[in-house]
Amino acid sequence: MKLSTLVTSLLLVVSFSAQSAIRKLDLELYPQGIPGAIDTSNQGKLFDERFNDRFITAISKPSLTLYLPESKAVEKTVIICPGGGYFGVSSIKEGQEVAERFAENGVAAAVLWYRMPNPATMEIPHEGPLQDLQQAFYRLQQGGEQWQLSQSKFGVMGFSAGGHLAATGATHFAQPVIDSYDAKVLRPAFQILIYPVISMQANNTHEGSRNLLLGEQPEAALVTAYSNELQATEQTPPAYIVHANDDSVVVVDNALEYYAALREKNVAVRMLLLEEGGHGFGMRHKVDWFTGVLDWVKAQ
């Protein structure tokens, strides 16, 4: 099943819910074509449909689903990167449900269906997801007036490997992977990282995410470049981090080291460490961690 069909079906379900005032738009990410792409034929395949979620893989034609709140005066917009180990994306648990709750509370949200790094579909696989995130910032800001986002501040949020992508966007904006883009457009106003992969170093990384993004035997320089705890600067945007201490998939040291790196650079950072919850809980934790995130976003 194609991602466009999946997204449409998801939106139809939402349109008959209590949140019917939310406006939803499916946006092509690259209206003029994807720089550096080899194959752009696949909008995604349904890999798994369990646990009240849909896991989509093999995306080579990226897109955005924009959720707009009822209020036309949108002051904050969040680009959401669902997780999936750079193998796929958790479309409901770490995408739709999060975007809906933002929109219900007056914050616009755009779920990014980014490409999976693959030498068969892109010239530089490790740059593909970051290129899509940078393009999302550019696309939403260029069309901001059309969607009443022209006065909005744009932040990024990511879960698991999507958290690595979000942190990469927050630490690599000064080196656009599309040459014509200005770093000022690409810098997030804030970053929200939920049980994020941060490091590509062997002692802390999530091995599957690292292998798919950088390859099984990456060069040391590439490992350093994509270990975001090593890339924080004074210009890195403020951060909110949520992680569970008992996460055995992406160890909490990822969050702890990024927190320490941001503090060292005098970047404002807030962190919530949950006693338990493991990995991949999305919005479905017994602790409503999202309330704190929402208050923090509105205060930025």
Rank of each mutant, 00 (worst) to 15 (best):
Q217S: 15
Q142D: 12
M122V: 15
L149G: 08
F190W: 12
A120I: 03
N105F: 10
P188N: 08
E145D: 13
F173I: 00
P129V: 12
Y195Q: 06
T168M: 11
Q191A: 12
F159V: 05
G163P: 05
K93N: 10
F154Q: 07
G128N: 08
R115K: 08
I80Q: 02
E123D: 13
Q201P: 00
Y181E: 04
R115P: 04
G85S: 01
N204L: 05
F102E: 06
P196I: 03
F137H: 10
A202S: 14
I92L: 13
R139I: 04
L130I: 11
I80R: 01
H172C: 13
P119L: 12
G106K: 09
Q134K: 08
V111K: 00
A120N: 13
E219S: 05
H164Q: 13
R101Y: 14
H164M: 11
F159Q: 07
Y86K: 04
M200Y: 11
H126I: 12
Q191D: 01
S150E: 15
V177Q: 09
V107L: 09
Q217H: 14
W147G: 00
A221Q: 06
E104L: 11
I192F: 03
D132K: 04
D182K: 14
V78Q: 01
G84I: 08
K184F: 11
H206Q: 00
L214D: 05
E219Y: 03
L133S: 02
I192C: 11
N204Y: 13
P188R: 09
L112Y: 02
P196F: 02
Q148G: 06
W113G: 11
L149C: 05
L112Q: 05
E104A: 15
K76A: 00
L186A: 07
M200D: 09
W113M: 10
R115I: 05
M122R: 13
S152E: 04
P176E: 08
N105K: 15
G144E: 08
A99E: 10
D182E: 15
G143P: 01
H172M: 15
Q191I: 01
L133Y: 01
L130H: 07
C81V: 01
A166M: 03
G144H: 08
C81P: 07
G128H: 01
Q142K: 15
D132H: 06
E123Y: 04
H164P: 10
P218K: 14
V107N: 02
G143H: 10
A189V: 00
V223Y: 07
A161W: 05
D179V: 07
Q134S: 04
P188G: 10
E216D: 11
R101C: 03
N204R: 10
E207D: 08
G128P: 02
V107R: 03
V111Q: 00
Q146C: 00
I80V: 15
I192E: 02
K153R: 14
A120K: 15
A120D: 14
Q148A: 14
L130F: 04
R210Q: 10
L186M: 03
Q142Y: 12
V111R: 00
G162V: 01
Q191G: 03
A161T: 06
E123I: 14
H172F: 12
V223G: 11
